[in-house]
């Protein structure tokens, strides 16, 4: 059974001990800055001068870089090739071969898009690497996010690895009975149903009893819930969050002002 429930890596660090909402606010404001802020190089600057240093401070630098490369490299390669060749407004040809020609407008567009996506994905990655999902959800429900929402998310995170494990078991069982899962398209589609059927039905059967179980634990009782875990927060962090919110609003305002002129 895969024991990794999320990207979270439990370590002691200044970033880990930040309040989850602060990290969430940071992620959102970095993304807003990257997409709406001025200048072609702002996203790269945010990545190298904010995100990378924070990942090092959070002692997750290695995983941060590895994961973002794994997730983004294929997309970036594709983006650069396709955009430099097919960007609609491309005029300045850098080089051409056969019927294709690469334009510098395309390359710039690819660079802009790629660096924005880089900031978007790695902002979330930083949050996820340093925050346990249940801490995040606990903190959010303490601040008024409905308890059922946080129930759904945390319980999904636990059901998925179980179902993956069950899928592997069923697959092995079927392979040992000689069911072919390779070969041509028809074969592969045919192999899908006997795998998916048992998987889906066995997990749906559990739903009724689990509903009884959480009712028995007073989950839908209309009282204000308390929380076992106390998640630290400080005045300083609250101020920081307001600053980030203001900065994001200013950036969006700047973008609107720009487009009006």
């Amino acid at each position: 059974m895969p024991d990794r429930l999320s990207f979270f890596i439990p370590r002691e660090s200044r970033v880990h001990s930040l309040n989850p909402l602060t990290k969430l606010a940071l992620a959102f404001s970095l993304i807003i800055l990257a997409f709406f802020g001025p200048g072609l190089f702002l996203p790269v600057a945010l990545y190298f001068f904010v995100l990378v240093p924070l990942s090092l401070l959070g002692k997750v630098g290695k995983e941060f870089l590895q994961t973002s490369f794994r997730l983004l490299l294929p997309l970036f390669a594709f983006l650069f090739v396709m955009q430099s060749l097919f960007y609609p407004g491309g005029e300045t040809v850098i080089f051409s071969f056969w019927i294709f020609s690469a334009t510098s407008e395309g390359v710039v567009f690819a660079f802009r898009t790629a660096t924005r996506i880089l900031v978007m994905v790695s902002s979330f990655l930083l949050l996820l690497l340093t925050t346990h999902p249940s801490t995040l959800m606990n903190d959010l429900s303490r601040r008024g996010v409905p308890a059922s929402l946080s129930y759904i998310i945390t319980s999904t995170l636990q059901i998925i690895p179980q179902m993956q494990a069950r899928a592997v078991t069923i697959q092995d069982a079927q392979r040992s009975r000689g069911l072919d899962t390779g070969g041509n398209l028809i074969n592969r589609i045919r192999s899908l149903l006997p795998l998916v059927g048992p998987l889906v039905f066995s997990s749906l059967v559990d739903v009724e009893e689990r509903a009884i179980a959480i009712e028995a634990r007073a989950f839908t009782l209309p009282v204000k819930k308390t929380s076992l875990i106390d998640i630290p927060d400080s005045r300083g962090e609250a101020v920081l969050r307001w600053v980030m919110a203001a900065l994001s609003l200013m950036t969006i305002g700047y973008r609107i002002w720009l487009s009006l002129n």
């Binding site: 059922s148 129930y151 759904i152 319980s155 999904t156 059901i159 998925i160 179980q162 179902m163 998987l199 889906v200 997990s203 749906l204 559990d206 739903v207 689990r210 509903a211 959480i214």
Partner: peptide, 11 residues
């Protein structure tokens, strides 16, 4: 519904 949604997401 509450209990079903996590199963559906996992599916």
């Amino acid at each position: 519904t509450l209990v079903m949604i996590p199963v559906a997401i996992a599916i």
